[in-house]
Amino acid sequence: MDVHDPRPPEDSGLVVRDLAVSYGPVLALRGVSLNVPRGAIVTVLGGNGAGKSTLLRAVSGTLRFQRGGITAGEISFDRTRLSGAATSAVVAGGVVQVPEGRRVFARMTVEENLRAGALGARDRRSAAGARQDVLKLFPVLAERARQRAGLLSGGEQQMLAIGRALMARPRMLLLDEPTLGLAPMMAARIADTVREINAQGTTVLLVEQNAAMALSLASYAYVLEVGEVVLSGPAAELAESDEVRRRYLGIEDDPEIAPASATSVAAAPAERPVLARWSA
């Protein structure tokens, strides 16, 4: 893997080494290694079914909810092993995920959603302080405190989902496609917020299909395709790469955004022509 950080990569932050994940017979990730240094924003790009959410589930320990599991490799955060740990332990260790599709508790109020976010916090007493910070970041959540979360707009739900995760005062935030389905204005707002959260000291792993936004935020990027890392490098360099420009930024003539088909994962041929292009 490229050296993108002056410090030794194993030293701190999130380290994923040779990770393989399967859902029963379906192999979803193979030999994935990546590193998110402390304090950085790192993004993982990939089309539908590439394995982005699977990666985050593996980190958070929620694969069993999908009847999946880690079959090889190791995940650690600040040298503490996460693979094999219970989700509550991962959260208590400071690694908190904002799941794909927001998943706010629709039947609960905004306020109750925020309280739910503090349930697994390292220090429950700090919940009041965390709440103030979240409401400062997202004032709209204060206005809607007593409303049912299900009644919020998509953008507001995304803010709630992020705010809820921040209630646990995470050291590291895992974001799964936070701009999915949002209007450009709202997506830009979310991007600003991610930048601000990071500036306040939270390490961020951002999973996205919206490559333009993600590459503008991140310092380093990985491209995941059919369960494997096919490309990685500093975000600025990737943004200049022809392949990424063509396939993920929609520049040039190819309109196809997600070349990886979900069904080809099970077959998982070792050598695919698409990989050869990346290997240069």
Binding site: V96, R107, G117, A165
Partner: peptide, 11 residues
């Protein structure tokens, strides 16, 4: 309401 997301909250 959503046991997987609740788990993500550390419940």
């Amino acid at each position: 309401e959503d046991s997987e997301t609740a788990a993500l909250m550390g419940v």
